[in-house]
């Protein structure tokens, strides 16, 4: 039987899922730098970027509506059983606490009362990060609860999206870190090179986890219902092969670049060699961008592989 693929969700929703996942995770990583390093120069732009990503994602979601001008109905009608409604609640929570937290970090908003209190900022950061995790997870749940698309209907999908979200979040912090590092004089750069090493290590681990989940997810679906196996074979052998391989290439190459840097840097440290700008900043920049593009391709590919339930008499 010819598989029928869902045809109503395209690039806008892919962008939304991607930006939601990346934005939510970016907040978590940004907060790590505040909570454990008190590194406002990373936490502040990180939280801001995270906020922008999620808001932009929400904007794409609204743009995808047939009636964008009526998007408020999704909030005020209070349909608690709907994951779209729940999503709007999560997004609102994230935007609210994310904004409060970011305000406390950003130099222009230092007049807000909680900016002074590290305790309050820690708490706010934790709440914002929790919402960040919810946002990241939610983008997977949105698809994962749909029984109509057996390939999506799996707990592995939210897990995959969380892993991919974290990878892209780490990558986005990597970019911020690289940019911050490049802006500073050489003597200050060392600190950012250190962060970069940490981020690179994490990225490698998370991408590894992502690959593991992906392999498991595909393996199970390969032998799952007909719809799921045809979705998998569409990606491995069929019309989605190219975008799926592009996703793999980008993510793996990105992670490889980062981990290469990690090892180069370790060797340099041991040998007491100097850290070049290229090695410490440009390389991770490239790796991070690749991972981010990969994250977008993953969302798009998964959406395109949404094979609907099939029926035979």
């Amino acid at each position: 039987m010819e598989p029928v693929v869902q045809h109503v969700w395209g690039w806008l929703i892919a962008l939304y899922l991607f930006l939601g996942g990346m934005g939510g995770a970016t907040m978590i990583v940004a907060h790590y730098f505040y909570a454990s390093k008190r590194e406002k120069s990373l936490a502040a732009p990180g939280a801001l970027a995270s906020l922008i990503m999620v808001v932009l994602g929400a904007l794409f979601l609204i743009l995808d509506l047939e009636k964008p001008e009526k998007f408020y109905l999704a909030v005020i009608k209070f349909q608690t059983s709907s994951w779209v409604f729940r999503g709007t609640m999560i997004l609102s929570g994230f935007i609210l606490f994310g904004a409060l937290y970011a305000a406390g970090l950003l130099p222009w908003f230092q007049w807000v009362p909680w900016a002074k209190s590290e305790k309050a900022m820690d708490a706010l950061g934790l709440i914002a990060s929790a919402f960040g995790l919810l946002v990241t997870t939610y983008t997977g749940i949105l698809l994962g609860v749909l029984k109509a698309v057996p390939f999506w209907h799996s707990p592995a999908l939210p897990a995959l999206f969380v892993a991919s979200g974290l990878a892209t979040g780490i990558a986005s912090m990597g970019i911020i870190n690289a940019l911050q590092g490049l802006r500073r004089p050489v003597e200050e750069r060392m600190r950012f090179v250190g962060y970069c090493t940490t981020l690179s290590k994490w990225a490698a681990i998370v991408v590894g986890a992502e690959m593991f989940i992906l392999a498991l997810y595909y393996y199970v679906n390969m032998f799952g219902p007909a719809e799921s196996s045809s979705a998998v074979s569409m990606m491995l052998f069929g019309e989605l092969r190219r975008s799926f391989l592009a996703y793999l290439d980008f993510v793996l190459l990105g992670a490889a670049l980062l981990s290469m840097l990690y090892h180069v840097r370790k060797a340099d440290l041991i040998a007491g060699r100097d850290q070049s700008v290229v090695k410490s900043c440009i390389l991770p920049l490239g790796g991070a961008i690749l991972i981010i593009i990969g994250g977008l391709l993953l969302r798009r590919t998964i959406l395109e592989a949404g094979v609907m339930t099939q029926f035979a008499p």
Partner: peptide, 20 residues
């Protein structure tokens, strides 16, 4: 009147019964 066209129902329907 109330439908905002999020299309979640289109994807949620296992019977592919909906369209925009």
């Amino acid at each position: 009147e109330i439908c905002i066209g999020c299309k979640y129902c289109v994807v949620a329907c296992p019977y592919d019964a909906r369209y925009v």
